[in-house]
Design a binder for these strands. Structure first.
Lengths: 128, 128
DNA sequence: AATTTAGTTGACGTTTACGTAAAATGCGTA
DNA sequence: TACGCATTTTACGTAAACGTCAACTAAATT
């Protein structure tokens, strides 16, 4: 019994603050494939999960092509040895990228904090 | 004596693996403003620093407009109280964004690790 | 002097990721 | 039955961030 609920297109736009155009575009790109009830789209929990992955990827600055690659890693086929090793290679690449982003973030946070501290000093000066 | 060296355009393209088009584009966008020796561009250490900030911002998925905003925070004018407080507000916003990205990265890293572990199990199986 | 090398200024082209009508359809409600 | 509302397909439009010529220039090298 794997959570047999469906989401309408507007439910998803509301939940994630995106437009219907965006959802249809992702479908065109084969990132989502909702079922149909007549012509209407019915998004499954799986679609919703994938949507979350897409949006998270976008927040991190990945293109949709990259997001697709990452998602494909999640539901990869069993495969034979060579396949599996190449999959590990790609995982390692993405991991390295993400670790670079982590460092970038830490640096930026540190710098912003320094600016903030300076500004605070000035404000304290003005209030004195 | 603040490091009086200049960088040519090709030096920078080599160091950062970008094209001259990109550097000129950033200049058009007023993100860089190299000096001139005749018609040739001479990039200062300051330009180089700003370039690093731009590229780091891009790696994090910020648009050039956002990168510009962030850079502007770094070299803000002294300003009066209201100004300073609004600056702090903007710093706080960016900080929150970056912290969201941090969480996104941690989640993704964790997921990739899980996939990798599964793949490794399969490989061990095959090698047995 | 002739040519290569590095750099310049236009300016049109391209990709990504949607935005934005336009026209049609189905469905519950007044 | 007429209406409004959500949804659909089709398709052209757009902003961002450069790519890619073309035509030129200045300096250095052969």
């Amino acid at each position: 019994m794997t959570d047999r609920r469906y989401y309408t297109i507007t439910e998803l736009t509301a939940e994630f603050a995106i437009t219907t155009r965006t959802l249809r575009f992702y479908e065109d790109e084969n990132l989502l494939n909702p079922e149909r009830q007549g012509r209407k789209r019915l998004y499954t929990p799986r679609d919703r999960t994938r949507l979350k992955l897409i949006l998270r990827g976008k927040r991190l600055g990945f293109s949709l092509a990259e997001v697709r690659e990452i998602i494909e890693m999640y539901d990869h086929a069993p495969g034979e040895k060579g396949q599996l090793q190449r999959l590990q290679d790609r995982i390692n690449e993405r991991t390295a990228e993400l670790e670079q982003k982590q460092r970038d973030i830490l640096e930026t946070l540190e710098e912003l904090k320094q600016v903030n501290d300076k500004v605070q000093l000035r404000l304290d000066e003005l209030d004195k």
